[in-house]
């Protein structure tokens, strides 16, 4: 609980509180890695167990998934730009790039929901087989994380409007950027090991 403040270095690292929060979040991300790893393992084990439901290769199509990947990867890039602007001390730049990040995230979510509804129409739902349960829970958990991230970022945007850049607000934005990049990494794994493999097998 030391209240001493460093005079140099990135704003978010200047207090011990800031440093501890960031470290705590890294450890939390470690736990998240285990969480998703378990979901991926479950998916891998249940792969091919489609029962009477359609096969993934009948439903997965490159088009929409490629657009989703493009949106989310770009949003990760713009999120990086937002933090870059924050480091430069530009509240305006931070807000601008963060809003673009969120717009891209929302686009991703929209497509994901459309896709889920489409699959359900084709007869692949959470209940239809072990494989589809694993698919919907894995992709759905990622989607839920994106949704929470969007809500969280909106709260932070309100706070930066109210308070400007401080040790605390910059720390909060830095942490959500870690979270956002993490979701991007998870999506890369979903894209390759779920969609790409599912399309060919």
């Amino acid at each position: 609980m030391a209240a001493e403040e460093l005079k140099t270095g990135p704003l978010e690292y200047r207090t011990q509180e800031g440093q501890m929060s960031i470290m705590g979040f890294w450890i939390f991300l470690g736990a998240e890695v285990v969480l998703f790893a378990t979901l991926f393992a479950t998916y891998a084990v249940l792969f091919g167990r489609t029962a009477d439901a359609p096969l993934p290769s009948e439903l997965f199509e490159p088009g929409i998934v490629l657009i989703m990947t493009f949106l989310l990867l770009t949003s990760s890039f713009t999120c990086g730009l937002a933090i870059h602007e924050m480091r430069r001390g530009s509240v305006k730049g931070l807000i601008f790039w963060m809003v673009i990040t969120l717009a891209l995230g929302l686009g991703f979510l929209g497509f994901e929901i459309y896709e889920f509804v489409h699959y359900a129409h084709e007869g692949a739902t959470l209940q239809s087989s072990a494989f589809w349960s694993a698919f919907f829970v894995l992709a759905g958990t990622h989607g839920l994380h994106v949704t929470l991230g969007i809500g969280w970022a909106i709260l932070l945007l309100i706070q930066i409007k109210q308070r400007g850049l401080t040790n605390v607000t910059s720390r909060k934005f830095f942490i959500i950027s870690l979270y956002w990049h993490f979701l991007d990494v998870i999506w890369i794994f979903i894209f390759t090991s779920v969609y790409l493999i599912g399309m060919v097998i």
Binding site: T42, V45, L46, R49, T50, A51, L126, Q127, S128, S129, A130, F131, W132, S133, A134, F136, V137
Partner: peptide, 21 residues
């Protein structure tokens, strides 16, 4: 969570139907 989803929302992770395991 998976077992909860199985029990409450009818998924097939650990069931004997739907090729659960």
């Amino acid at each position: 969570a998976l077992l909860t989803i199985d029990r409450i929302f009818g998924a097939q992770f650990f069931t004997l139907t739907g090729e659960g395991l």
